[in-house]
Design a protein around this nucleic acid. Structure first.
Length: 574
RNA sequence: GCACCCAUAGCUCAGCUGGAUAGAGCGCUGCCCUCCGAAGGCAGAGGUCGCAGGUUCGAAUCCUGCUGGGUGCACCA
């Protein structure tokens, strides 16, 4: 249960009753009424803004209205008190039984705790990674991969049906370059001295294996077409291995080539044409510094500027073939027509300039403004002990995702990639990621979980029943220390976190929530060092011990549930 | 020149879609191991939320204009 929504609902039903009784005018807008947490926990458990938001429409003073709402709220069995404070806040204190009930809920739900139905089964398509099949994944791809994967899991937890998709750019000139590079490696494999790899071809050693494979094929398949197929297949295999090593799961690998061959581009452009949004024209030269080879020429254009883009955009190249943009329109339209009403693309920040035109095309085709949400991931700066790791594609020393995973492990990579919001650059320090200290968020969260497990093991050795069923039988009302209640509140806010992070498409919030939860637990733990009556295991008080073990168990549940969204294993021991 | 993103403690960053006295970590100062894991925790110092306006009961958050940084800017993918 999202308990904020619960109290929100209580308030709304009171407001509706007041309206029915004529105490509030009809047609009043309740949509801005919402429950939040009070700045100071001493104020109560939940703060309600209803009176301040509605005062003007109701023609009443905020505090006056608040007093009346509060009086009704205080009647409810879940509410111990409702007090008016400040400019018109209603501070609600939940009934004594409320928090133990949340704890019981956590224990009963297990790892599913936090699941929500706000998605209502609607289908969301999350497209991520989609790296060109021309080489191994690098660290930047890794960020998008983790982000997309965690977002997909988050949306699923919030009740959406999710399609996790990878768009394979297996058509176009980059793949031709790949094929040519592979053919060169084939000649190398056949014993020819190929010397330096010419400028414009891919120099990476990873293509040697492709060359060897090509050399084994019959002559009839040692063509550009054959090389294209083999190279893309082998590159995708290696990418899939990298993804598997990172624990990234994708349901669908869509082929650009297949899309083009199925005539989807013509269909999408025809759909735009039917709306009168395609024409042949000459674009203004770009402002500022002009490309050397710029020349005015007539092109087939899409009226992107009518949908918020800066200029109209070409659909055809000068040789008459489709632009990448045209196939991309077709691809996005295809995803939409396959039944996803929301499309999320996870891109590198270097594609930022491309967002508007795709969004424009989607708006033109669907008539809706917000079907597409593009999440741009900023650069990952790889560090070691505070010093940047030198990355250079030219020198062949660029760091692959695989290398980083091999060094620090997939769990660490996944967590670290979510310690910044997607639109901020991320510094990833390889040394710090393995450090066992407060500095290292992955460790800190894992440590909290391991500590909990350790307590439960100790209790079990001492003969306590730490099974979920055993703990559920505990008298959870015995947990009345403020530190304990505040930890329960933290745990109980997980369902709301899931909903908010899912709505905002921001999986990093889960990583921060986990750190806060871990901190709340470590805090309580250390309280027990100073005040022995606060320790979880009280030998002379088995009932109290049981209820405290239930709390500890709930901590493992919530941390485990959060880590599952990120795709990180919860540690039993460190 | 234009578009998008960013600007919050000395440093690295959160900030619940507009709420009350803006929060963590690192660093600094002083503390806490006879103990279920000190691989942790407590307390203190540290802020004109880049600047200037605007919107309203209320702005770090929304709008406008600046300043400073990042990214990208015919037909490439």
């Amino acid at each position: 249960m999202n308990y904020f929504k619960h109290f929100d609902g209580l308030a709304l039903s009171i407001l509706e009753r007041m309206q029915a009784a004529g105490d509030l005018p009809d047609g009043i807008d309740f949509s801005r009424v919402s429950a939040g947490s009070p700045r100071d926990p001493a104020h109560g458990d939940v703060a309600l803004n209803a009176a301040m938001v509605l005062a003007k429409q109701a023609g009443m003073k905020p505090r006056e209205l608040a007093t009346r709402i509060a009086a009704s709220l205080a009647q409810h069995e879940d509410i111990e008190s409702a007090e008016v404070a400040g400019p018109g806040f209603i501070n609600i204190r939940a009934a004594a039984s409320f928090w133990p009930a949340r704890l019981a809920e956590i224990l009963a739900a297990g790892r599913d705790y936090g699941a929500s139905d706000i998605g209502a089964g609607r289908t969301v398509n999350v497209e991520y990674v989609s790296a060109n099949p021309t080489g191994p994944l690098h660290v930047g791809h890794g960020r998008g991969a983790v982000f997309g994967d965690a977002l997909a899991a988050l949306l699923e937890k919030a009740g959406h049906t999710v399609v996790r998709e990878y768009y394979v750019n297996d058509a176009g000139s980059q793949v031709d370059t790949l094929a040519q590079s592979a053919l060169l490696r084939m000649r190398e494999a056949q014993g020819e001295d190929i010397g330096e790899i010419p400028e414009g071809l891919y120099p990476g050693d990873y293509l040697k294996a492709v060359g060897i494979a090509l050399a084994k094929l019959p002559d009839s398949e040692q063509t550009l077409d054959g090389a294209r197929t083999v190279a893309v297949e082998m590159m995708m295999d290696s990418i899939r291995e990298d993804l598997a090593a990172a624990g990234i799961k994708q349901d669908l690998f869509s082929s650009e080539r297949a899309l083009v061959e199925a005539g989807r581009v013509e269909a999408a452009v025809a759909a735009l044409e039917a709306k009168g949004l395609v024409y042949v024209g000459v674009l203004e030269p770009p402002k500022g510094k002009l490309p050397d080879d710029w020349e005015a020429r007539p092109q087939t254009l899409f009226r992107a500027s009518e949908f918020g883009d800066d200029t109209d955009r070409p659909l055809k190249k000068s040789d008459g073939s489709w632009t990448y943009f045209a196939t991309d329109i077709a691809y996005h339209f295809d995803k939409y027509e396959r039944g996803s009403d929301t499309l999320i693309d996870v891109w590198g920040a270097d594609h930022g300039g491309y967002v508007k035109r795709v969004a424009a095309a989607m708006q033109a085709l669907t008539g809706k403004k917000d079907t597409l949400d593009v999440k741009l991931c900023q650069l990952v700066k790889l560090m070691r002990d505070g010093k940047p790791v030198i990355m250079s594609k030219r020198a062949g020393t660029f760091v692959t995702l695989r290398e980083v995973i091999d060094e620090v492990g997939a769990d660490v990579v996944r967590f670290m990639m979510l310690t910044r919001k997607n639109d901020a650059p991320l510094e990833f320090d390889l040394a710090r990621a393995l450090e066992q200290s407060r500095d290292n968020p992955v460790f800190y969260v894992q440590y909290a979980h391991a500590r909990c497990r350790s307590v439960l093991r100790h209790a079990e050795e001492a003969g306590a029943d730490v099974s979920v069923a055993g703990l559920a039988a505990a008298d959870l009302g015995l947990l009345n220390d403020p530190e304990e209640t505040s930890l329960v509140k933290q745990l109980a806010s997980w369902p709301r976190m899931v909903e908010q992070a899912a709505e905002a498409h921001e999986p990093h919030r889960v990583a921060f929530f986990l750190q806060e939860t871990a901190a709340a637990f470590h805090q309580l733990w250390n309280k027990g060092r100073e005040d022995t009556t606060l320790r979880f295991i009280q030998e002379d008080a088995p009932e109290l011990t049981k209820s405290r073990l239930a709390l500890v168990s709930a901590v493992t549940t919530v941390i485990g549930s959060g880590l599952a969204v990120i795709g990180v294993e919860a540690a039993e021991e460190m």
